[in-house]
Design a protein around this nucleic acid. Sequence first.
DNA 1: CGCCTTGACATTGTCAACAATCATTTCGAC
DNA 2: GTCGAAATGATTGTTGACAATGTCAAGGCG
Lengths: 219, 219
Amino acid sequence: MNARSDGKDVTARLREAIVSGHFQPSERLIEVELAGLLATNRTNVRTALAQLEQEGLVVREANRGARVRLVSHEDAIEITQVRGALEAFVAGLAAARARPQDHRRLRALVEAMREAVEAGDLIAYSKINGSLHAEILRIAQHRTAAKLLANLNSQVVRFQYRSILLPGRSRRSLAEHEEIVAAICAADVEAAERNMGAHLRAAAEALRQVIEASKTAIV
Amino acid sequence: MNARSDGKDVTARLREAIVSGHFQPSERLIEVELAGLLATNRTNVRTALAQLEQEGLVVREANRGARVRLVSHEDAIEITQVRGALEAFVAGLAAARARPQDHRRLRALVEAMREAVEAGDLIAYSKINGSLHAEILRIAQHRTAAKLLANLNSQVVRFQYRSILLPGRSRRSLAEHEEIVAAICAADVEAAERNMGAHLRAAAEALRQVIEASKTAIV
DNA sequence: CGCCTTGACATTGTCAACAATCATTTCGAC
DNA sequence: GTCGAAATGATTGTTGACAATGTCAAGGCG
């Protein structure tokens, strides 16, 4: 009957709800509530929670239920570092695989980034940033890396917007992306790896600064 | 009552059973059978299967049950590549973090590897190889990378032994490990990354060769 | 006043029965 | 003999009830 509401994968919908911020970190995830919310039964919620735990979005304690995983600052940095290693590899692949058509798309995205920065629209910048990384991932055609990166990203989306707020970070980030795209368009595998690696090291460093700043600010 | 048999995490035991080869790739995993085998109920088996699917060890089709994931040759190469990116990063970390005590352990492991190669004992070699990589991972102290690598490894253990059988591969592999350990002991981060990266590119290449050989051999 | 025990409530964990689906076999028509 | 349709069996999917556990508040005791 209501194949519509229940047909979609419960895990996917719960994941989306967590990633989109519908639930706060450390918020309790009560099985019957979720079942009601997602128009399904406890069993499905239960397996969804088990999967999302494996995925690092949810934490479960025996007999004490599930919570949205609170990603600590250290975790966020670790995740960004690992992303860096993977994305550098992926950028290298993209440099080897990209066709002229791909080059055009990448350049268009960088151009849009530049406009966003000049307009001071950091939210738009953040979005395009995501699109650019996604495009590079698409060009690389590497399922294993793609899955892992999607996973890692879902764990740190909450942190994404923060580091770009650092004064001067957006301009430097733009410059880094320009170099990455230039390397890919030049089919220079090693430069692409190097530039992407440098970019995510810089991103991790920016994240660390923001975190340190917030720590001292709170105390 | 039988807290012993059921107490342990069902997912962990099923994972172990799959990784250790107790079940063959593509072998059907029937819920009631597993429940009997693991001395538990269908519910627990069900959630275990859901988690292992997320982990990439199991494939499930709606209404058609679960099977051990058959990792294709392409998958195996992809996984080895991604491992390479991660392990290179981890080796760099290890180079930065390793203490003299760690250096001793690493050198001892390489020494054991050398002996295994000279004795022609490739099974022992394979084991020590695993220990060495695990030791480097321990030194690096990076939970996120450690978890991902554990995951990836469990997907390709079945392929591990094959590539080392290539004529001359074991000696070269030994040399590569010596260089990696030398770089870590010299606290040379970049050399450690570079050497580990090269090592796993070589491993991926060896794997590719073995696969090509087996393809033509079968046809 | 603080601390421990007790009990009620909320939530998760386990189980068995039933429904739905898929694979296989049987049977009849041509 | 071959094709297709219906019956059969095996397996997964779903549901509800119950047990086990944890949480919290109230009350008694030192």
